[in-house]
């Protein structure tokens, strides 16, 4: 009999009754553990392990096929001339210089607009807004916004920026539309990063007489920055790869002029892939150009995602 139980008995506590009941339950339980049951569970576990690994292999196979096909198709087409030439009617003279520049211009708008609006929104919701029903409602709806299909954002961009503000299919219209598209993602990622900053750091700052904004600027944001950057880079890579909103905005099929201001019409990498693929009916070699453009786009996206992973690993949780 254990010392604790002895003490219970001495004190005449009724809790000891509970202990006897439990002993009975353990006896009954022991009978149910038979080896056949364990054998079946181990076999189920092994079966599931193979199923899970097959799922992983499936994704890898798809990626391998994709890379192989575009690799073969783009071989011989992806060279310096391809990267530095503008569009041409002749497939062997055509290049994606204009599309690369268009994508860069697009990012020059999307990055500042989403970072400023997104991080500000996240700061407001996490640090300033009173915690309550309204704040929760806003947060849920920002998350909902993140899952709205991109073509709908394209329609919104067409109506507001293209028509109402009369920006047409310019870089500015495209950039603002793309910003709307990825803004919810940036907001949610920044919110998570800010929420992960431990409260005791804020307390330390407030305890020395710091006001809220000083605390946010000097304590919260530096600690949250890696998380904000990781989320934002992933959002940017989405903006670089999106096609639908630009198609809806009516980005012209053929641009021979290299854009030199944000009010100019432009083309971007995914759009270029889209139109070259459509035009393959006319000129079969365009398929190779599309493949070469895909290689460039994928390379950019892989680099961006790697940077995001590196940042995340470098600033692993320190608390």
């Amino acid at each position: 009999m254990s010392a604790a139980k002895l003490e219970f008995l001495r004190e005449g506590r009724e809790d000891t009754m509970l202990e006897t009941d439990q002993t009975h339950a353990f006896e009954r339980y022991k009978v149910k553990i038979d080896s056949g049951r364990i054998e079946r569970r181990v076999r189920l576990n092994n079966g599931l392990k193979h199923l899970f690994s097959l799922s992983t292999v499936f994704a890898l196979v798809v990626l391998a096929i994709l890379l192989y096909r575009i690799g073969v198709q783009s071989a011989g087409w992806l060279d310096l001339q391809f990267l530095t030439s503008n569009l041409s009617r002749f497939a062997d003279k055509a290049g994606i210089y204009g599309a690369i520049l268009g994508t860069v211009y697009l990012m020059l708008i999307v990055v500042p607009v989403t970072l400023i609006l997104g991080v500000s929104t996240a700061i407001y919701l996490e640090e300033y807004a009173a915690k309550g029903r309204i704040q929760r409602f806003i947060k849920v709806n920002i998350s909902n916004l993140a899952s709205v299909p991109s073509v709908i954002f394209g329609l919104l961009g067409l109506a507001v920026f293209g028509r109402m503000l009369n920006l047409g299919s310019s870089i500015l219209a495209g950039g603002l539309t793309m910003s709307l598209l990825v803004l919810p993602t940036v907001v949610v990622a920044s919110q998570e990063a800010i929420k992960a900053v431990p409260g005791f750091l804020r307390e330390a700052s407030y305890g020395m007489g710091a006001d809220k904004w000083t605390t946010i600027r000097k304590v919260v944001l530096p600690v949250a920055l890696p998380g904000i950057l990781t989320g934002s880079i992933l959002a940017m890579s989405r903006a670089i790869g999106e096609t639908a909103p630009l198609v809806v905005l009516g980005i012209p099929t053929l641009i021979l002029k290299i854009p030199d201001s944000v009010m100019d019409d432009f083309t971007a990498l995914p759009i270029q892939i889209y139109y070259w693929t459509l035009d393959t009916v006319l000129t079969p070699e365009y398929a190779n150009l599309a493949a070469a453009t895909i290689v460039v786009l994928l390379a950019v996206l892989f680099i961006l995602n790697s940077v995001a992973i590196i940042i995340r690993n470098k600033f692993q949780k320190r608390f």
Binding site: F200, A204, G207, M208, G209, V223, R318
Partner: peptide
């Protein structure tokens, strides 16, 4: 709070 400072239960230096 600049006049009435505070030391907390768990050491909470900034990173």
């Amino acid at each position: 709070r600049t006049k009435v400072g505070m030391v907390f239960q768990k050491p909470n230096p900034f990173p």
